[in-house]
Nucleic acid binder design. Structure first.
Lengths: 136, 136
DNA sequence: TCGAACTTGCAACGGGGTTGCAGAATATTT
DNA sequence: AAATATTCTGCAACCCCGTTGCAAGTTCGA
């Protein structure tokens, strides 16, 4: 409870019930969420627009990061090392084709790639699709 | 010219000018294209819906594949080994943050990843963002 | 407790993508 | 070459995603 307020405070955000609820949804659900997921869970309490803006704010402040997907964007909590100035996301995302859940594999790093001459890589995004442990 | 018709024929598609034009746009431009790109190039000749359906058809037949992006889907030509039954896409995509182009690095394969117990990977999608050779 | 600064809800909008249907084009059969 | 079956296209309409402007409400520091 105070944990949430603390997180918001650290990122210089005013504590509002919407931000607390969105943040706690991310913490409880653990996997990557789309705007639609959040609207389904919180849509009766808050306007869609507010949820969009909350996501945008959280993105900018480094609280969440984008997770690529072949059918729409999702978002997931950043590790604690992220901030407004610097994001560090070289971990792998796994999307289960059975249950549809997308999860961060925080402790698996994207392997190094030897790019041809002239390419200057900045960000890496690896999505692996398949069947997750829960779905056999 | 006959090359295009041949490709369509191989995939059991009727030859129409729209399909020929979309296909030749992919071949000429070489990089990954969004629906918007195609509409910009061919929109005066064909309806948006027709372009959408052409992309969908090409996807199903294994002529093009989806390319992930942090701001909307793109499509790129498949290598010749793809078909309706089997797609093989373990190559890397590079998106330039300067010119905005996304390209397939066909000859660079995604390195193997050791997933935790229970994960059964099927498809891999690696997007690297940075600056491409053309943009210094 | 007051006021400045920020956040929310509402309405409205634009774009992305899909569907149903009638008419047009393509392929196939004779 | 003509007729038929099949497929494709254009149009209209629709829904969903995401954004913007503005007025009213809320937060927080002085």
């Amino acid at each position: 409870m105070d944990q949430l307020r603390e997180t918001l405070k650290v990122h210089h955000l005013r504590t509002t019930t919407c931000r607390e609820d969105v943040l706690s949804t991310f913490i409880n659900r653990k996997n990557a969420l789309s705007h639609g997921d959040l609207e389904g869970e919180l849509g009766e309490n808050y306007d869609r627009v507010t949820i969009y803006r909350t996501l945008k704010t959280f993105l900018e402040k480094g609280i969440i990061h984008k997770v690529l997907d072949d059918e729409g964007l999702r978002y997931a909590l950043c590790s604690h090392s992220c901030s407004e100035e610097k994001h560090q996301h070289d971990h792998i995302h796994f999307k289960c084709s059975s249950c549809g859940e997308t999860n961060c594999l925080e402790n698996l790093h994207i392997p190094a790639v030897q790019l041809p001459e002239g390419y200057h890589p900045e960000h890496f995004n690896l999505l692996i699709q398949g069947v997750c442990p829960k779905c056999k």
